[in-house]
Amino acid sequence: MSVQGRDCCITLKTQYREMGLPYSEETIREAVSILKEEAAIEGDGNCGAIRRSRGVTGCVVTPLSIETAPLLFVLALGRSGLPAFVSGTRVLYRHTVNLSAMESGLRFDLIQDRGAVRTLYEGCRVKDFELRIMRGEAIKLKLDIAGNFSPVCYPYPEKAAVYSGERFKEDGVKYRINGTEYKNIYGLTIATRKDGGTQTEVRIHRTMNSAELPPIIETLEITAQLLHDHYDYRLYGAFRLNLSRLVLMADETAINAGDTVIGPLRYYCAGDFSADVFTTSEEVIE
């Protein structure tokens, strides 16, 4: 079940802030299992079953903007710690978030507003996430949500303000591989599973008939910058992703089509994954 519409709202609540997401779609719902009792040998042969709540499941797909990116990266990747002041500026701070090689992460509450029905899911976490960068589109983050508590009705009528602001788009992204900038990358997807450890795969869509990507990438740096020039500080309105030790797993280029233009390469991240998010506030963003 995929829910879309301007009358719906998803709100994330952490210890320090409450943020409404400008999501594009969501499938948040109660996870249900059935305790089944087999039919007796005698009788009408009917089986019995008891409905049992297993918490919350589903996903949220949301675009990254100047206001939502810091918190969303913390929820997806891990804790941010204390911000570091950026020298040469007056009020600019850098928040570093690191991918934790553990299943557990920062817990948060999720409020689902579908018009007449408002539901509260407590103690949620991000179990998997996927970052999508495609030519001509906004950068989107898909969060797979999990939780152990049953949903309850949310009685309060107040709604959190939806954080929007300028959205990051593909045309403001630069890719540097082993220190060299590549301009033949059409799009990129980073998929991370955090179940019993962390597994990260990177799918790079590159244009054909151009410089080939190496089979082993020691460093991949992805920098996204907002295009408007009204930001006072040179790094505000930007984030940077750093991945190390990428190993080529498969070349998924279609070989049965003679006019193939875009060819995807699938890499496994055997090293570290971290992100730098720049804001004008020194407070802890989580």
Rank of each mutant, 00 (worst) to 15 (best):
residue 210 S to V: 09
residue 197 G to P: 03
residue 158 E to I: 12
residue 244 S to H: 01
residue 172 G to D: 00
residue 148 N to F: 13
residue 203 R to Y: 06
residue 192 T to A: 05
residue 231 Y to G: 09
residue 238 A to S: 15
residue 244 S to K: 03
residue 221 E to T: 13
residue 234 R to V: 14
residue 197 G to V: 06
residue 203 R to D: 08
residue 220 L to H: 04
residue 193 R to P: 13
residue 166 E to H: 04
residue 201 E to Y: 15
residue 195 D to G: 05
residue 178 N to C: 06
residue 165 G to V: 00
residue 189 T to G: 02
residue 209 N to W: 06
residue 225 Q to A: 11
residue 155 P to F: 02
residue 188 L to Y: 07
residue 168 F to Y: 09
residue 245 R to E: 09
residue 156 Y to D: 12
residue 203 R to S: 11
residue 216 I to L: 09
residue 153 C to E: 09
residue 187 G to S: 00
residue 160 A to S: 07
residue 171 D to F: 06
residue 159 K to A: 13
residue 196 G to Q: 03
residue 214 P to S: 02
residue 173 V to E: 03
residue 164 S to T: 12
residue 242 N to K: 15
residue 177 I to Q: 02
residue 152 V to R: 12
residue 150 S to D: 09
residue 230 H to A: 11
residue 197 G to E: 08
residue 237 G to V: 03
residue 235 L to E: 12
residue 198 T to I: 07
residue 216 I to K: 11
residue 224 A to S: 03
residue 237 G to N: 03
residue 164 S to H: 08
residue 152 V to N: 04
residue 158 E to K: 14
residue 161 A to N: 10
residue 159 K to M: 15
residue 214 P to L: 04
residue 235 L to F: 15
residue 201 E to D: 13
residue 188 L to H: 09
residue 168 F to L: 03
residue 183 K to I: 08
residue 196 G to L: 04
residue 208 M to I: 13
residue 185 I to Q: 00
residue 234 R to K: 14
residue 224 A to N: 02
residue 184 N to D: 00
residue 182 Y to R: 00
residue 149 F to Y: 10
residue 195 D to V: 15
residue 170 E to N: 15
residue 169 K to Q: 13
residue 241 L to M: 05
residue 211 A to Q: 12
residue 220 L to F: 06
residue 190 I to W: 07
residue 173 V to I: 02
residue 209 N to M: 12
residue 163 Y to M: 09
residue 165 G to R: 01
residue 193 R to A: 14
residue 241 L to C: 06
residue 230 H to K: 14
residue 244 S to D: 04
residue 148 N to K: 11
residue 235 L to M: 14
residue 152 V to A: 10
residue 236 Y to W: 08
residue 201 E to N: 15
residue 162 V to H: 04
residue 244 S to Y: 01
residue 158 E to R: 13
residue 156 Y to C: 07
residue 184 N to P: 01
residue 184 N to L: 02
residue 218 E to L: 13
residue 245 R to I: 09
residue 173 V to H: 03
residue 217 I to K: 02
residue 214 P to N: 04
residue 225 Q to N: 15
residue 167 R to Y: 12
residue 168 F to C: 02
residue 154 Y to L: 05
residue 175 Y to W: 05
residue 222 I to D: 02
residue 210 S to A: 15
residue 215 P to N: 15
residue 168 F to Q: 01
residue 227 L to T: 11
residue 216 I to W: 10
residue 232 D to M: 13
residue 200 T to A: 08
residue 220 L to V: 05
residue 183 K to T: 12
residue 189 T to K: 05
residue 194 K to P: 04
residue 161 A to W: 10
residue 189 T to Q: 05
residue 167 R to P: 06
residue 242 N to D: 10
residue 165 G to C: 03
residue 212 E to Y: 08
residue 151 P to L: 07
residue 226 L to F: 08
residue 242 N to E: 10
residue 181 E to P: 06
residue 155 P to K: 01
residue 168 F to K: 02
residue 171 D to S: 07
residue 155 P to A: 01
residue 208 M to G: 07
residue 173 V to S: 01
residue 172 G to W: 00
residue 195 D to E: 12
residue 188 L to Q: 14
residue 178 N to E: 06
residue 193 R to H: 12
residue 181 E to V: 15
